[in-house]
């Protein structure tokens, strides 16, 4: 099957470029003037390393947004995974077992979210907020509020090592990205996901059980959260329930800034990747430019609001 695409004029092509790409260009040019060494190779690697675990977390959030839901637990659940990973590592288990346990923990948290949201019809923002807070509490109880070291060298290699000069953390993030891409665009799982976000009736008439499909999706979100937990724990060589603080909001912001939308049931994971890069470059750029901490929070919030409203306004204009 081949589709013939109609020819587009240059203006149409430029106009169809996602706003986040323009915004990315603007901040990169700005920071190349304000931040010494911002455009260095070392800093590029630095940004990629910092963005990689964040990307996995944002992919998880994007899946929730694509089914028209929101997951407020990704930060706390991810931190809970870091606690489990560090605890098992301290008890002397091999790194791969600890990592697998982290993923399973994440999957378990996701499954719980899914069951309550899909089966019991509890609104997602309440379910995920509740379970996220609960797992934060469990993590605090287990650790007593003190971080648990996970200093094993092989484990730290995941965050700090590189293979042929390519950071390990980037390789992992890209593999996860590829896996998510295959899952979303090449399997019935992905079709169901877009179906859930768009037209649930049609999905049901097509013979798919929307409840099962949604539980499945939240479980996969949990798996991704567990994988992000591995990388966050490796970066800090420890586990702590606080490590997820506000990361759900970073993940939501990246998803939306990239151009995905809560309401439409469309959008894609490439947009999320651009959103992650935008936030990461913004944060690093502000740090390297030596902007004061108080102004940083203000600027970050302001730019996020401007970015999202520009996106919304441009879309509204296009539709008009």
């Amino acid at each position: 099957m081949k589709n013939k695409k109609p020819q587009k004029s240059i203006i149409q092509v430029l106009g169809s470029i996602e706003p986040v790409i323009w915004m990315l260009a603007i901040i990169i040019i700005t920071f190349s003037f304000t931040g010494e060494k911002f455009l260095s190779w070392g800093n590029t690697i630095n940004i990629i390393k910092q963005a990689s675990p964040f990307l996995i977390l944002a992919l998880a959030e994007t899946m929730a947004v694509l089914v028209g839901q929101i997951d407020l637990s990704v930060g706390n659940n991810m931190a809970f995974c870091t606690v489990i990973i560090a605890l098992l590592m301290r008890s002397g288990l091999p790194v791969w077992v600890c990592a697998a346990a982290g993923v399973l923990t994440g999957a378990g948290c996701g499954l719980l979210n899914g069951v309550f949201i899909a089966r019991f019809k509890v609104p997602a923002y309440i379910t995920t907020f509740g379970f996220g807070t609960m797992f934060y509490g469990v993590g605090s109880l287990i650790t007593g509020g003190v971080s648990i070291p996970a200093m094993e060298d092989h484990f730290r290699f995941l965050a700090d090592g590189s293979v042929f000069g390519i950071p390990m953390v980037m390789i992992i993030a890209l593999l996860v990205f590829l896996a998510v891409w295959l899952l979303v665009y090449r399997t019935s799982f992905g079709r169901n996901m877009y179906g859930l976000g768009g037209n649930r009736e049609a999905l049901f008439l097509g013979g798919v059980d929307p409840v099962k499909a949604e539980i499945m999706i939240f479980t996969v979100i949990g798996v991704l959260v567990g994988m992000a937990g591995i990388l966050f724990a490796a970066r800090s060589a420890s586990g702590h329930p606080d490590y997820g603080k506000q990361w759900e909001f970073n993940a939501i912001a990246a998803t939306i800034i990239g151009g995905n939308s809560f309401s439409e049931g469309n959008g894609n994971i490439f947009k999320t990747m651009l959103g992650v890069l935008f936030i990461q470059i913004l944060k690093t750029g502000l740090n390297i430019s030596g902007v004061s901490p108080q102004s940083q929070s203000f600027l970050l919030g302001l730019i996020v609001v401007v970015a999202i409203s520009t996106d919304v306004l441009l879309k509204a204009r296009k539709e008009a």
Binding site: K37, G42, N46, S147, M151, R235, S238, N287, I288
Partner: peptide
Amino acid sequence: EDQVRLVEDMIQRGVDAICIHPVDSNGIVP
């Protein structure tokens, strides 16, 4: 995590020295 990122960014910026009040004794080590 934010503190870890700040240290990494300062290494990239090539500052001459860093003084830090850590949030966490273990998490800041890497």
